[in-house]
Amino acid sequence: MSARFALGACVRAQAAAREGHTRLPAYLRGRIGSIVALRGRYPLADERARGLRDARVEMVYAVQFSLGDHDVVADLWESYLEGPA
């Protein structure tokens, strides 16, 4: 399975709140950032937290967001991300 987003791609963090445990921080929801690194494939934290033995494995991306006078980089699973609107 190939990565949906390429290095340098512009992406948007999902705006809608995710149900249950998630590793998508609320302060990044709906924000647009760019992919600065592909981290490799890891079990989706949301599913692993529910104790699922066969948690979905997804590409994790380092996404850089500009928040005014500074940048924040967060490692986000593919299903947390959407193409830019």
């Binding site: 590793r23 998508l24 921080p25 981290r39 890891y42 934290a45 994790v60 380092a62 850089q64 006078d69 500074h70 940048d71 924040v72 980089v73 967060a74 490692d75 986000l76 699973w77």
Partner: peptide, 12 residues
């Protein structure tokens, strides 16, 4: 100097 904050959200 630009500040870059790394939020440890995954296994990294």
């Amino acid at each position: 100097t630009r500040i870059r904050v790394w939020d440890s959200t995954s296994e990294m």
